[in-house]
Write a protein that binds this DNA or RNA. Structure first.
Length: 217
DNA sequence: TACCAGGAGAAAA
DNA sequence: TTTTCTCATGGT
């Protein structure tokens, strides 16, 4: 696995991912970016920032219809307005994001997953980038890349894939952030809809993968 | 015009 | 249990 990340880092350098000023802002962004390009998320975040301060009470004070309109640029705006309200209500009931930050990682993850609209990937985005916890975001880019490299079979569930990569990379937050960012940037640039990473820095490894699938992490 | 993006949940099979 | 459908704007 580290052998995959080294050429990616050599090519992409240090990536500074998920610009946000607080864990709460990461929580908002993680919901807004569900199946949505980050460019569109930024527009909604700007509209939101111009209207309110980023905290649970301020967001919940915005009428639901107005909140949905503010989120329109991010797509699925009615759905995401409901999801943000559910997340903020849960956070507020728990004492706010500062209180949540004192919870251990497993407890915090279970708490997040119990909120309607927060699935495993969104929860792990929040844990890794918001609360600096050692989890890997096992998104579609990771699944696609590792599948093409023959490092996974491709039928693993989300939790299985996450556990596999965490075992391979260790528990260092900076490493897990870097791995996720590199895999996504690489995927967006080279591997989006192609059957193999032709023309990219990992091409040779993909060829190897075709010959020796299931080489393991 | 068609496809996809830093998914999740409900409904159908 | 697994697959399919719905939610939606904006860029390529």
């Amino acid at each position: 696995m580290r052998g995959v990340l080294e050429p990616l880092q050599a090519h992409w350098g240090e990536l500074s991912w998920w610009p946000a000023e607080s864990p709460f802002e990461v929580m908002i962004g993680a919901v807004l970016t569900q199946n949505t390009a980050w460019r569109n998320v930024e527009r909604a975040l700007e509209a939101l920032r111009a209207r309110i301060s980023f905290d649970e009470a301020a967001l919940l004070a915005v009428p639901p219809e107005e909140l949905a309109e503010l989120l329109r640029p991010a797509g699925y705006y009615r759905l995401k307005a409901e999801r943000l309200r559910a997340l903020c209500a849960a956070s507020q009931a728990a004492g706010g994001w500062r209180t949540l930050s004192a919870l251990d990682t497993d407890t915090l993850r279970h708490w997040l997953l119990a909120i309607k609209g927060v699935g495993p990937e969104t929860a792990d985005d929040i844990l890794l980038y918001g609360f600096e916890r050692p989890v890997f975001v096992a998104d579609a880019y990771a699944r696609r890349l590792l599948g093409r490299l023959g490092l996974i079979g491709g039928r693993e569930g989300y939790e299985d894939l996450r556990a596999l990569v965490e075992r391979a990379l260790g528990r260092e937050v900076a490493t897990l952030k870097r791995a996720h960012a590199l895999i996504v940037e690489h995927g967006k640039a080279h591997c989006r809809a192609r059957p193999r990473c032709t023309g990219c820095v990992l091409r040779a490894r993909c060829t190897f993968a075709a010959e020796a699938p299931g080489a393991g992490l």
